[in-house]
Design a protein around this nucleic acid. Structure first.
Lengths: 146, 146
DNA sequence: TCCTACATTGTAATCATTACAAGTTAGGAT
DNA sequence: ATCCTAACTTGTAATGATTACAATGTAGGA
């Protein structure tokens, strides 16, 4: 199950430790853009000896090697994403969920023309996601719920 | 000097305290996208009795009233901006400076078509700004410096 | 099987931000 | 002009995310 991740880590001259494998696997199977503590809490159930510091260290290492990406959207926390292709995000201010938006910024060339050397492109929207928007409508129009 | 800010605050039913006026004025005259502590440290020189909490409170209040905007780009800190029109940002990973990029996302309609209710649009790039890029070039080609 | 450089772990420190309680003040009412 | 009170400021203590560090453990090459 972890074979592809083991190969990936070795390609980057990183040791394939069980902790790192679990963290990569978690990110690949949970597209919830979790923060470090989410991952720690989730993996703790099956690996009680896991340390919070290990999660932080592993995420930092994987990010430096461009194996995962970090997302800075909601203030005060860093979230992580196994997807490393360019795409945008939407942060719902009601349920605090981050969802993917399949968009690529068409203006990169123009920015580079201004002398900027772009390493990362981030685009995100804040607002209310379709699910929460529907719930709010129902609340305000209870007659239609029947 | 503060007259326009006094008017602005009163329009929003906020008291025009000297602390708030100084903070608004600082943001309008320093387009450096400072964080709360930058503002606190700067204003302290002329107002030694200013409290860090007051800066946090004032920024939060002004943001809620849409008088200023907050920017979440660099992990672990919230930066502030007096500009409330839509534009993008560039975070230089070398000098940690945030500069304005005059771009407006052309894809908003497409996202709204997906059922999302957009309240804020954020776009930013990370990389090396023109100034730092030039410095690095000089360092690597010292013969050209003469 | 043996090393050892690289990783993990737990605790303590740090940094940004928020909570709270006490004192102060802007600005409308008198 | 003075009074009054809700709104604001202040300092300190608490919180939460993250990092520093020193001791221990282990992946994986020799």
């Amino acid at each position: 199950m972890y074979e592809p991740y083991i190969t990936l880590l070795k390609e980057h001259h990183l040791k394939a430790t069980p902790q790192r494998l679990q963290i990569i696997h978690y990110l690949h199977t949970h597209h919830t853009h979790p923060n470090a503590d989410d991952i720690y809490t989730a993996l703790r159930h099956t690996s009680p000896s896991l340390s919070r510091t290990t999660v932080y260290n592993a995420l930092e290492t994987l990010k430096k090697e461009n194996i995962i990406h970090s997302i800075t959207i909601s203030a005060g926390e860093t979230r992580y994403d196994a997807r490393i292709d360019t795409h945008h995000h939407f942060l719902c201010t009601t349920c605090n969920t981050i969802s993917d938006i399949e968009l690529v910024c068409p203006n990169i060339k123009r920015v580079e023309g201004g002398g900027y050397c772009i390493e990362e492109v981030h685009g995100y929207f804040k607002g209310i996601c379709p699910q929460c928007a529907q719930k709010q409508e129902r609340k305000h129009e209870p007659k239609d719920a029947a």
